[in-house]
Design a protein around this nucleic acid. Structure first.
Length: 365
RNA sequence: GGGUAGGUUGAGCAGGUGGUGAGCUCCGCUGACUGUAGAUCAGCCGUCUUUCGACUGUGGGGGUUCGAUUCCCUCCCUGCCCA
């Protein structure tokens, strides 16, 4: 907690209060949500993905159409991931070497080559506000990949030319303290606009993640640049990371679990598909001001999920994104007010156990 | 009334032409999901049992048989054709 930071980031498309959460819109859309939905939920910045968009519809096409902001209708800041995560998630469809990564497209099997230079080129064409270096992410081989990632960091910087776009480096090293430290030190020595922590929440324990973040926090103690923990996370994870100096987060979790019926509240998580919600006239969360909570009952949402109606996915996503962004705002306020510890304890306790056990009784109007 | 095809675990089916029918898909119940190949995946889904396992179940009744989903008799129900 002594390392928690409050701040503000400037980009070409607006400012970002930190700590901040970035909803993920891999294919130039946060699934089921319109830009209007995102604005209403309080989103300040969203993600998109270079690998996916280069394959479809093509980054040159997006550039011709005026760039990602015009293409999507989202005029706020956008961060693009390089495709490094796909090196991990599509491991069976690619082969990496010291120079780059070769994918067999998950769409049609065609060959797609990604190098640090090419990842920068794609992201410059997309016109995002923040670009990420290409990284090679492999939990088991992380220590062996530290050097390669540092070389890729240098090459990314050398290739980057857009002055209206920030470029972030990525610290790897897995859960090995020495490797993580070495990666942090070498990456921080380079002229990136921000530093990300990658290779976490890919199967390691919570304790291992916290330990890795401790190492990074130590190494970056005097570094003022924004720090971004990639791929995290859940409500309880935010506190662990913020206390270790993290400013930015992205994660598919709020939107993915929403589509599968799970919604988040201060009382914990709950599954709208559960039979107990079928007759519940109360909202998901009586304290939430999102569209779903203002206008609809748990019973209605439970019905929509059973009927596989598309509105279910949107309303649940609207709620989870709103809840997550509200939580970030409450954390910023709590850091300012000195009430952070009690907020952390309440949320952490509620999310330590299952939704069924922590669910609050139905709201009676 | 005659003919014909059927009746299998909530639904829809598969199977089985005398030698232990709990198999599938839905529905239903629960869980998982962390820089999105995910509106996905997994487990359960007759009864008892934590498990192992035991028991019950092929429309009803009866018969033949060591043994019947299977063969015989009878009744009920459904679809279609004819009158």
């Amino acid at each position: 907690m002594r390392r928690a930071r409050l701040g503000c980031l400037s980009t070409s498309h607006g400012q970002i209060d930190t700590p901040q959460f970035m909803p993920v819109g891999t294919q130039a859309t946060v699934k089921s949500l319109t830009p209007g939905d995102l604005r209403a939920s309080g989103a300040q910045i969203i993600l998109a993905n270079a690998y996916h968009l280069a394959l479809r519809p093509g980054h040159e096409r997006i550039a011709r159409l005026g760039g990602l902001h015009r293409f999507t209708g989202w005029d706020g800041p956008i961060l693009t991931d390089s495709g490094g995560f796909q090196v991990f998630s599509l491991a069976h469809l690619r082969r990496s070497d010291d120079d780059g990564v070769t994918f067999a497209s998950h769409i049609d099997g065609s060959t797609m080559r990604l190098t640090p230079e090419r990842a920068v080129e794609i992201q410059e064409a997309l016109g995002s506000d923040i670009a990420m270096m290409l990284d090679d992410l492999h939990p088991d081989l992380a220590p062996l990949l530290v050097e390669r990632n540092v070389r890729w960091a240098e090459r990314s910087l050398a290739a980057h030319s857009r002055t209206d776009q920030a470029l972030f480096g990525i610290i790897q090293g897995g859960v090995d303290a020495d490797a993580r430290r070495q990666s942090a030190r070498a990456t921080a020595a380079l002229a990136f606009d921000g530093l990300a922590v990658g290779g976490l929440s890919v199967g390691e324990t919570k304790g291992q993640m916290a330990a890795a973040l401790d190492v990074v926090a130590e190494e970056l103690a005097d570094d003022a640049r924004p720090r971004y923990l990639m791929g995290v996370g859940s409500p309880e994870d935010f506190f662990v990371a913020i206390e270790r100096g993290i400013d930015l987060f992205d994660c598919v979790l709020p939107t993915r679990v929403a589509r599968n019926g799970q919604v988040w509240t201060d009382a914990g998580k709950l599954n709208l598909r559960n039979a107990r919600h079928l007759d519940d006239p109360g909202p998901i969360d009586a304290t939430c001001s999102c569209e779903a909570c203002r206008n609809h009952s748990r019973a209605y949402l439970a019905h929509l999920f059973r009927a596989e109606e598309l509105l279910a996915y949107r309303l649940a996503s609207v709620h989870n994104v709103t809840y997550t962004l509200d939580l970030m705002r409450r954390i910023r306020t709590a850091l300012r007010d000195g009430t952070y510890a009690s907020l952390r304890d309440v949320v952490t306790e509620r999310y330590a156990s299952t939704g069924a056990r922590t669910d609050k009784p139905p709201v009676t109007p």
